[in-house]
């Protein structure tokens, strides 16, 4: 590649960087701007002239953001635990045990995977409502606490374990449970991590379902609480900015810590539409 071509390449990459990360950086800058800052200065100023943390305390004073974080955390915890346990158990049975109707059951999970959640969400709500779980965090978590996609991902994970490994354990007299727990599960830790991460992100970011299920404010998850930001602070973009940054911190921390799994999960074919 010639020199000009290389320069051109990095210019385009830089443009994309500004486009994709720029809005976040601008939001960060906005959240620290104080009363002395002209928000509408020409040209726009990135470094605050009158830096303050007042916007953050302002949001925390007026909205119970920490409560929202706690609620989201509870939902995410239920969903992640349910998916790891449920999908691992079912994936193992589908991949490594032989029984009648195995194909049928696998087919059921495939069908469930193909049903778009938006098209059944009203019926889901009626169901949750009739069981008395409307407006509870458990009601938010239950429908997604074992996703068909994750069951099939775990099944694929278990399928690639060489049969010899399990056979050796069987000769030593290990029963199903021991083969599951001591032989197979340690082999699929990577897939389990991917399942955990994607369930976490999905639960943490979900908006439509909590919006339908939850009605009282003390049960709001973070996305619902944030939705109120716009109404509450419409006139002050700095407060909205501070609110979004607070909401972003947990998910960015997870992303920073487990970055390689995010990419690995996508490459492994764990595509979520």
């Amino acid at each position: 590649m010639s020199r000009t071509q290389k320069t051109l390449r990095y210019l385009v990459l830089l443009a994309f960087f500004l486009l994709l990360a720029g809005p976040l950086l601008w939001q960060l800058s906005l959240s620290f701007k104080g009363a002395g800052d002209d928000l509408y200065a020409q040209p726009p100023q990135v470094i605050p002239a009158d830096p303050t943390t007042g916007n953050y305390t302002g949001v925390l004073d007026r909205l119970p953001v920490l409560l929202y974080v706690l609620n989201s955390g509870i939902v995410a915890l239920l969903v992640v635990a349910g998916n790891i346990a449920g999908a691992t158990l079912a994936g193992f049975a589908l991949a490594r045990l032989r029984f009648r109707f195995r194909c049928l059951v696998t087919g059921l999970f495939v069908v469930a995977l193909l049903v778009p959640i938006e098209s059944i969400i009203i019926a889901q709500f009626l169901l949750v409502r009739s069981t008395g779980l409307a407006d509870t965090l458990l009601g938010v978590a239950l429908p997604t606490c074992v996703a068909a996609l994750n069951v099939l991902l775990m099944r694929n994970g278990f399928q690639v374990i060489p049969a010899e490994l399990e056979e050796a354990a069987r000769i030593d007299g290990a029963g199903v449970w021991r083969r599951f727990w001591h032989v197979c599960v340690p082999q699929v830790r990577g897939v389990m991590t991917v399942v955990a991460i994607f369930s976490f992100v999905g639960a943490w970011n979900d908006f439509l379902w909590p919006l339908i299920v939850l009605s009282s404010e003390e049960n709001y998850t973070l996305t619902l609480g944030l939705n109120r930001l716009r109404g509450t602070f419409y006139s002050d973009p700095r407060l909205i900015a501070a609110g979004t940054i607070i909401a972003l911190l947990p998910i960015l921390a997870v992303f920073a810590l487990l970055q390689r799994y995010f990419f690995r999960g996508l490459e492994a074919g764990g595509i979520k539409g």
């Binding site: 158990l89 032989r98 029984f99 009648r100 059944i120 606490c145």
Partner: peptide
Amino acid sequence: THDRWWTPWLFLVPALAIVVVFILFPFANT
């Protein structure tokens, strides 16, 4: 692979229950 016919179903119960109750049933109900 296992001794009792219901062993695989023990592994499947949690996932199957959630998927049938919260996805397939609501789909039929829709």
